[in-house]
Design a protein around this nucleic acid. Structure first.
Lengths: 193, 193
DNA sequence: ACATTGACTCAACGAGCGTAGAGCGAAAGA
DNA sequence: TCTTTCGCTCTACGCTCGTTGAGTCAATGT
């Protein structure tokens, strides 16, 4: 049958990857507390002890699982300039998020209200985003506006991905983006880069 | 000294109230999982078994703790009409919320991403709000707009009360209301009651 | 061929949890 | 005053959790 005999190193890497994948999925689905090492191990078809051996502790496994894609990345380098607008970039990442959000981010957001470590991560990520946004806004209450913009993004993402509100299920991201655009523009202030 | 001897019924009601208060506070602070019956009992200066005796189970205690003030209430009946505008009512409840949000609501929100029961409550409360909002909007995508408005409110509340973002700490509610006003207006659509 | 490494499992621990039942002692009713 | 009620505590059960250390066995290095 297709069962190849793999070299040790390769086999190890795959097992570790399977564990990390299972961890991310479970953390994202039920949060830190309810995601048990035992359940993660079962999902990865591995002994619970192995999880500890590879990742040290549940806490460290969680940190590894929450290596977040930063979102609102500096763009694709020197692109054609079609995505220069700040609001459009925000709406773009939101469109991506609502469709296929990385499980690491979901894991972080799912636990950010109840797990101190996840809360710290969330504050750090959001803080970094706010910093970047503030530079692009440079108005009167630039920093506060930036913070409010991020809270709006968080709210929409929470409603969609985590609470799964009926009213937002199955709504195409561009539809949401369209309705949200004026609101975000109102927050960025009159002039943006 | 001030130590009065209270009648049985009164004494019982007070103890029950103390337990419920401690439960609300702890649930609001650390969420369902991390708030243990033992800790709640300790905070209420009572034996853990008494909590069970009065409330049946941790789950029921949580449900009792989460008797939510509905927020965005139908107004103070036949008032002077000074608060007729929809957006202003939203901003008003938000102003109240950011200052002194009821612990029951906080408890619900804190756990809504990780505790199924809390999630159900949150969906129900938000759904009811969305229903009411939808009536007041009656435009094209009225329901979707209403849902987005609520996600914005949730986002701001989460950022303020639960994540406690530095950028929003100590900012007077009316300041936030002022910056948020145009955004909400953009979501309600051109005409509102 | 033999020794060694290392991926992986087994069995068990101590701790903390929600919860149950018996019991105590003061207030309430006769 | 005697009996009953009942607010409240004590003790302990059973369970699940994260975590550990010893052990197994096939792949590896010589």
């Amino acid at each position: 049958m297709g069962e190849k005999v793999l070299p040790r190193a390769e086999r190890r890497r795959r097992t570790e990857g399977r564990i990390l994948g299972a961890a991310r999925a479970l953390f994202a689905e039920v949060g830190y507390e309810r995601a048990t090492i035992r359940a993660i191990a079962r999902s990865a078809e591995v002994d619970p002890a192995l999880v500890m051996q590879y990742f040290g502790s549940k806490q460290e496994l969680f940190q590894q699982s929450v290596r977040v894609v930063t979102a609102l990345e500096p763009g694709t380098g020197a692109d054609g300039g079609a995505e220069d607008d700040l609001v459009e970039r925000l709406l773009g990442t939101l469109g991506v998020k609502l469709g296929e959000m990385p499980q690491g981010s979901l894991a972080m957001m799912r636990s950010m209200l109840t797990h101190p470590e996840a809360a710290a991560s969330a504050r750090q990520v959001l803080g970094a985003q706010i910093d970047r946004l503030t530079e692009s806004i440079h108005g009167e209450d630039a920093r506060l506006r930036a913070a409010l913009i991020m809270t709006v993004m968080v709210g929409v993402t929470v409603g969609n991905q985590l609470l799964e509100l009926d009213e937002l299920r199955g709504v195409p991201p561009e539809e949401i983006a369209r309705l949200l655009r004026p609101s975000l523009r109102a927050l960025t202030g009159p002039d943006v880069s």
